[in-house]
Simulated assay, not measured.
Amino acid sequence: MSNDRKRYKKISGKVIYGTTTEERFKEVHGITIEEWKAKGEERFKAKTGMGYDEWYIKQVNSSTPIDYLKNLNGVVSQEDVELVKDLQELGLNDGVINVLLDYVKIVSRIGFIHSLVRQMGESWLKKNVSTIESAMAFVREEWNS
């Protein structure tokens, strides 16, 4: 199969010709990615009464890092407790620790490597990531780069 034909993807018998992600998305869904995200935000807001960010901030603020880990993993080991204590001793507040733990859970395919999470916590402190909002902005920036 030639290189030109490989980039065409069939979805339900339809050939997609777009060369960029945005073009392909619009061909398949009929709207742009931004419009899709806005509709999702509207549905979420109608259901919960708050936007994604407000909801997430409420979630990370409403539990301790130990409880947050319990919700993420189901169980919390003694090493996990020590990791949280280390992060608190570094000077990170509980909300920022929860965002950090959430981020590691999402991006790490091999789980929590405590020394790496500690280093990330130290890095966040050096970069003045001290509030939940700044942690969320930092994570978004890292994710998009």
Rank of each mutant, 00 (worst) to 15 (best):
V28H: 00
Y56I: 15
V84R: 00
K10V: 12
E27D: 08
H29W: 12
D86W: 01
K39S: 14
V15R: 11
Q88N: 09
Y56N: 09
T48E: 06
H29F: 15
I31Q: 05
G40F: 08
K105I: 05
V28C: 04
E142H: 06
D86I: 03
L100I: 06
I57Q: 02
T64R: 14
L83R: 00
V75M: 15
D80M: 04
L69N: 04
E54I: 03
M1E: 10
V75L: 15
Y8W: 03
A137L: 11
E122N: 11
A135N: 01
D53C: 08
L116F: 05
Q88T: 02
S77E: 12
L100N: 02
T64I: 09
S2D: 13
Y17T: 10
H114K: 07
W124A: 04
F44H: 07
N71T: 12
G18A: 02
K39C: 12
L90T: 04
D53I: 14
N93R: 09
G121E: 02
H29G: 05
V15E: 13
N93L: 10
K58S: 12
R7S: 10
R43T: 07
W124K: 03
M120E: 02
I16A: 13
G49L: 13
N93A: 10
E22I: 10
E142T: 10
A46W: 08
R24W: 03
G121C: 10
G51E: 08
G51Y: 04
Q78S: 11
V104G: 00
L116I: 08
V28D: 00
K10C: 06
V15L: 15
T131I: 09
G95L: 03
A135S: 04
E35C: 09
E27N: 07
P65G: 05
E22R: 15
L90M: 13
E22N: 13
F44D: 03
W55T: 01
I16P: 01
V15T: 13
L72N: 06
I33R: 11
G91W: 04
P65Q: 02
G51N: 14
S63I: 03
H29A: 12
K6D: 10
K85C: 04
K26D: 05
T20Q: 13
L83A: 00
D102N: 13
G95F: 00
V75D: 15
R118D: 02
K37V: 14
Q88E: 06
D4Y: 05
K45H: 08
K14V: 15
S145W: 10
Q119I: 02
R118N: 06
K58Y: 10
E79V: 10
I106E: 09
K10T: 09
L72P: 03
S2F: 07
I16S: 02
L90R: 02
I57T: 04
V28L: 08
R7G: 08
F44R: 01
D80L: 03
S115H: 09
